[in-house]
Write a protein that binds this DNA or RNA. Structure first.
Length: 560
RNA sequence: GUCCUCGUAGUUCAACGGAUAGAACGGAGGUUUCCUAAACCUUAAAUUUCAGUUCGAUUCUGAACGGGGACACCA
């Protein structure tokens, strides 16, 4: 319907760019355009009369007349469109499990990289954020037609493993660690100890570097301990991903994701490509760096003075591999926003190498969780463990009355929704009440509303599809009008990589529905046609909430 | 010091340059004989400051103030 307006307006006005809005206030119609105001400015005319002229021409178009019962000029010269009732009713019948999906981006390929926890470090609520947002964005892209590959770029390589190996050898006991329920906890304790000791003894940092160099040179002992660290970590990761119902493409190490170590042997290709293009310069102390035009960004280090590589080197190798193997139209990195500069450097290098054009590389940076007092830090040991958050959430859901499996679904729903409902880039001050919120604009609210629709349908026994000649009340009309916009919201949400827009929509729809239900009778209504219509409305709203939650990666339970 | 971000009710967040700035939590008051009160209804409460661009600015530009982050051998 939006397309219909857009095409017709283009035809009438001969303008290239035309904006069609969905007004926040439904008083202003289902769609609205400010085209008359834009044109009036250019042509020096009165916007209001120009709008009236455009409306007169629109009224002459058959296709437009068929869809819209009213088109009017309002305010300073807005043109507002009101969809006809029969079109609204007809649209209601289109709602099914596929409603909202489109093939707009059919044939396009994208790789979405998210979660990316570090081996031997805690899976914290910070990683939770990347996991949840990344997964939802991947789902959104899929719903709008993209072929999506999901990658978990594990932090399984780097200097910290030198420190880790040194710490395990010096203070740890491998046999004991293996028997633990959550081995990572012990690894983190060792890691914290390393940094405490390093403050007293400067040589320790060098010891760490030495062991990492050994690892890069494939020293058997270094390699063996490193591999054990990965397996120890996956004891926890597997558990968390299963709980969260998140998984990665099986093309990548059978769903474990391609970690940085996967690219260790592919870095020489990148380095020689940079050399060929004469992009590498020697720095003050012998490291090799890429410098940027006019010092747009600080230089990016590719090789350290001791000859070992860095994160940039590995990321370049990663994208080279992706480019050669999948030729994607788009690669998204869902990584904390503290790495914004880092990614700008990376993308600039990739542009210099001629790998990607503007807009093909996206860093979706989310704000960090922090405490009121300051930053969370693995090194200092003040982090919130994912496990604990999950435990608390399930406890709260149980207290509110759900049982067994449902309490877990509700708990996860609350956690996910609290991350998704806000703009990803806002930072979050950690607060137990907020993260476990299950009232108002929350995951459980949507789940509750869905369960409510199921309950009504179950009690009603049968549903009759015929509901002609119903008088629609204002609450029903508001719902019908909202239903029309679901597919558009998916597209807007996906092209902006913004799951929060979908959250807003779903919450508003659910709100309208709950309001309607507390006000009007359904099961005891004497008019069969009205009952039938209301049941169909209920069914459709339930279906949309389910579809929406699905895209957000949240389960919709039949009962609560 | 340089760069990036953010600044909206008591709190946490919304609002492609649009129309009366919208929610949730918390506060005050109310609603359970169709479904499930994790709900619904009523109510008080906000755009950091100063300039500028515009028919129109929370949104864009500049400055100030304030929070957060990043800046060569971590990732």
């Amino acid at each position: 319907m939006k397309e219909e307006i857009l095409n017709t307006l283009k035809e009438i006005t001969k303008e290239e760019i035309i904006q069609i809005d969905i007004p926040e206030n439904t008083l202003f119609g289902d769609y609205s355009s400010n085209i008359a105001m834009i044109m009036a400015k250019k042509e020096g005319k009165n916007p209001y009369t120009l709008a009236e002229e455009i409306v007169a021409k629109l009224q002459g178009k058959k296709n437009i007349k068929l869809i819209f019962e009213k088109i009017e000029v309002a305010g300073a010269g807005f043109i507002n469109f009101y969809i006809a009732k029969d079109i609204l009713l007809n649209n209601l019948k289109k709602v099914d499990e596929k409603y909202g999906n489109s093939d707009l981006n059919k044939g396009k390929i994208t790789i979405v990289e998210y979660s990316s926890p570090n081996i031997a470090k805690p899976f914290t609520i910070g990683h939770l954020r990347s996991t949840i947002i990344g997964d939802a964005v991947a789902n959104l892209l899929e719903a709008s037609g993209w072929k999506v590959f999901r990658d978990n770029h594990l932090g399984d390589w780097g200097t910290q493993f030198g420190k880790m190996i040194y710490a395990i050898k010096t203070w740890g006991n491998e046999g004991k660690i293996s028997k633990l329920d959550n081995p990572v906890k012990e690894l983190v304790t060792l890691y914290v100890k390393f940094h405490e000791e390093a403050e007293k003894n400067i040589n320790l940092e060098d010891e760490g570097r030495k062991w990492f160099k050994k690892l890069e040179e494939a020293d058997p002992e270094a390699k063996r301990i490193w591999k054990r660290c990965i397996d120890w970590s996956f004891v926890e990761f597997d558990r968390i991903y299963k709980s969260l119902n998140v998984s990665f493409s099986k093309e990548f190490e059978n769903g474990r994701g391609l970690g940085e170590s996967f690219f260790v042997n592919r870095m020489s290709g990148v380095i020689s490509e940079l050399e060929e293009r004469k992009l590498l310069k020697i720095g003050k102390e012998g490291a090799k760096l890429v410098f940027f035009e006019k010092d747009k960004y600080p230089p990016a280090m590719i090789i350290k003075k001791d000859g070992t590589t860095l994160y940039h080197t590995r990321d370049l190798a990663t994208d080279k591999y992706r480019l050669e193997k999948y030729n994607p139209d788009l690669i998204i990195n869902e990584v904390g926003s503290e790495q914004t500069l880092y990614f700008r450097q990376l993308f600039e290098m990739e542009k210099l190498l001629g790998w990607f054009k503007e807009g093909q590389r996206i860093h979706l940076g989310h704000g960090l969780y922090r405490f009121k007092e300051g930053k969370m830090s693995t090194r200092k040991g003040n982090v919130i463990w994912m496990e604990d958050v999950l435990k608390e959430a399930i406890e709260k859901a149980t207290k509110l009355g759900s049982k067994g499996k449902i309490s877990k679904i509700v708990a996860i729903g609350a956690l996910k929704y609290n991350d998704l409902k806000r703009d990803p880039k806002t930072e979050i001050v950690f607060d137990w009440n907020e993260i476990l919120n299950m009232n108002g604009n929350s995951g459980p609210y949507l789940q509750y509303t869905f369960a409510r629709t199921r309950s009504v349908l179950f009690k009603s026994k049968s549903i009759n599809k015929v509901y002609d000649a119903v008088n629609i009340n204002s609450e029903e009309e508001a719902i019908l009008r909202a239903i029309v916009h679901f597919p558009e919201v998916i597209l807007i949400s996906s092209s902006n990589y913004a799951p929060n827009l979908l959250c807003n929509y779903l919450f508003e729809l659910a709100s309208k529905f709950n309001t309607f239900y507390n006000k009007h009778s359904i099961l005891t209504n004497e008019n069969e046609s009205v009952t039938s219509f209301r049941l169909n409305l209920t069914k459709s709203v339930g279906q949309i909430i389910k579809n929406g939650l699905n895209i957000l990666g949240i389960e919709a339970p039949e009962r609560m």
